[in-house]
Write a protein that binds this DNA or RNA. Structure first.
Lengths: 137, 137
DNA sequence: CCAATCTGTAATGCTTAGTATTACAGTACG
DNA sequence: CGTACTGTAATACTAAGCATTACAGATTGG
């Protein structure tokens, strides 16, 4: 899977530890070791879904908009990486019973796998992630 | 994730429907819509782990070596795609508490997610996959 | 014995997804 | 109105996935 999901978690954790002031994409990108534009792209998604607020101009930046325990990893996964489990198959052969039916079967299996992983991810709220980050300083 | 996992499932399903004779990589590759060399690479893995047998030369090919119900999708996942969930993070910043700890936290979360998905995949044996393929002809 | 038909695998090149970088418009503040 | 930000499009770079070529080794049948 691509790393938008982990960058989103990283950014939100960063913001969670600065609850009373705005953080710039530069600061977050330095913490995460990626380019600021990428952070802004990911944060743009998070903003669109109401997890964070942003403000332009001097003194601007990003800030968490919800309570930490209201946001879980499945929420974040869905907006950054949904469908990432599904590998894209080339068109297979309709003349062969396997080729003709495999895609349908695999799609349903992978869909189920993603739903199942969702149950696991729902058990991690951002509060728990931040606690884990804090645990070993 | 890459498509080795699905190609392995596709190939095994194909072999499952030809239980009494050998199938060539050409036949399987045509069914799956990919290059024969790729199929041989995937099947080489499956052979190394004892799921199939192969025979070189005229009349040779591949054939299932176990009972269909003995092989489940988690077995196949493990040898083709283990670790595929884990996105690779760039080195993050050790000077920042988030940067310094995030990788460890994410690794453990993704490891757990993969294990959890494993429980789901274990419920699909190749017998069940083949039944699904046969269901709608 | 040798030509044909397979697997096994390394090497090379192509294609695409992911990512970095540049550029610049828009917003807010002092 | 200059400075410090976000927002976003466009371009370029890089790595992973995949196809293709090439060829050695095994097996069979004529």
């Amino acid at each position: 899977m691509n790393s938008d999901f982990t960058l989103a978690i990283h950014s939100l954790s960063f913001l969670a530890l600065q609850p009373d002031r705005m953080s710039t994409s530069d600061a977050i990108s330095e913490s995460a070791g990626v380019h600021p534009v990428r952070i802004r792209k990911v944060l743009s998604l998070l903003k669109k879904h109401g997890f964070i607020k942003s403000k332009e101009g001097t003194g601007g930046g990003f800030i968490f908009a919800l309570d930490l325990s209201e946001v879980n990893l499945w929420d974040i996964y869905k907006i950054t990486s949904e469908g990432a489990l599904q590998p894209k198959c080339p068109e297979s052969n309709e003349k062969c019973i396997v080729g003709a039916n495999m895609q349908r079967v695999l799609c349903s299996i992978f869909f189920g796998a993603e739903e199942h992983m969702g149950e696991y991810l729902k058990d991690y709220s951002m509060k728990e992630v931040v606690d884990l980050v804090n645990k070993r300083q």
